[in-house]
Design a protein around this nucleic acid. Sequence first.
DNA 1: GGGGAGAGATGCCGC
DNA 2: GCGGCATTTCTCCCC
Lengths: 246, 246
Amino acid sequence: MWSNEEYCSLFNDAINRNETVVFSCKCSIRYSGRAESFLDIGDRIIIIKNDNALLVHQPSGNAPINYMKPETSHKLSLEVNKLILRSRNLSLKEQMDINIERIYFFNSHKLEDGQSIIVSGTEDDMSRMIYENPSLVEEGLKPVSQEEQTKYGFIDVLCIDKNNILTIIECKRHNADLGAVTQLRRYVEKLMVSKGISKVRGILAAPKITSNAEKMLIDWGFEFKSIKPPKYLEEFDKKQSKLDNF
Amino acid sequence: MWSNEEYCSLFNDAINRNETVVFSCKCSIRYSGRAESFLDIGDRIIIIKNDNALLVHQPSGNAPINYMKPETSHKLSLEVNKLILRSRNLSLKEQMDINIERIYFFNSHKLEDGQSIIVSGTEDDMSRMIYENPSLVEEGLKPVSQEEQTKYGFIDVLCIDKNNILTIIECKRHNADLGAVTQLRRYVEKLMVSKGISKVRGILAAPKITSNAEKMLIDWGFEFKSIKPPKYLEEFDKKQSKLDNF
DNA sequence: GGGGAGAGATGCCGC
DNA sequence: GCGGCATTTCTCCCC
């Protein structure tokens, strides 16, 4: 489409104008910074955003294979008849060199987007649901606090049970694992010390729990309660009937 | 550039041919599946990969703001003069609707890339370095095993110290936090039980440790040793002198 | 800016 | 597939 010289001008001018650059190319990539990596030659999509973050995507897979953080400087130059994109982040001590053999397409554009995403069905929604209706976990629980910040971490939901025992509820929106149990244990132990009491209950609330985590949970005298995050799949199931004509 | 009808043909044909599609547009996005989300109107870059994964990127920030996993079906259609991209993953019970007001640019291309990335400086490299030279951590340590798989997790490096005490070394390539300490504790406790011995040492090897984590570490009688991941920044520092002309 | 923890985490490896 | 865990994790929130 364009010559290598023209690509250099197009690219560097677009970066200077703070446009978002998108192109695909055949390239190899070296990165050095927090770690070091090398990716041999292949086809990739490269994006440089308004904030000068850089992303490299392979033609499959979810996560970027290489990237540079925002506020990185980028310069495309021609060396011995080859295009090289040099990206440098001096303050983070990170650098990337992309050796470009061929550009398949190139686009740059000024993009505007001030929107923030709204998400529901998170762990925070789950702990709020339990705080507002602790009987979902156990009859007679009275809520004390939600998302309580402490030095040793923050407790999702704190309750008092029907026998007046302090009860910590740790929520997980997916399968609870060993880490979730040790997290709960840490809160229970620290609360016993800080309040000077000998008995604090710990309940893990999640849709499921791994078998090893359950063993550990029982060993330490904690409990598991199967609870789903709120509104989970509701809308999908509701609309399933409409999908027949898709 | 093209009419809405033409975009529909271009898009759906490209998907059928298994090409990678890249376009930027003004759009709003609804997602429902593991959670639910809404993103109001703004400019975004959308990628649909060879494996039918979909990514939505805002003009700034590192991570995709919305996405669908591989093996999702996508169909662009014209409804009441508006473009709507419907993405469905029936097996994962996930769906996304992208309401497109305007397309800024559009490209599709068959991309080929069979390369895997090579990364060094990871935690695995760090534990290997320590296994091969445990005196980095302490004089007199003799290595026993690396990355030993157990039911309760896997131990990075297992050693015997100069007094014949079993010593577990847990590596972190960045700042060690409370979770790292509880992880170490879990291994130490389980090893004492499974081996039927009363004393097992625990050492946390990382470049740094958070203040709270260090308190906890000391409380439980464990130790911290400041160690950097191998080759960390080496290449960068080496090449720093060459960067003057950049 | 550090600390702590979730994420629609993702991805890797091992069983 | 589940389980356990690192990630150039990223991102958010709170202190």
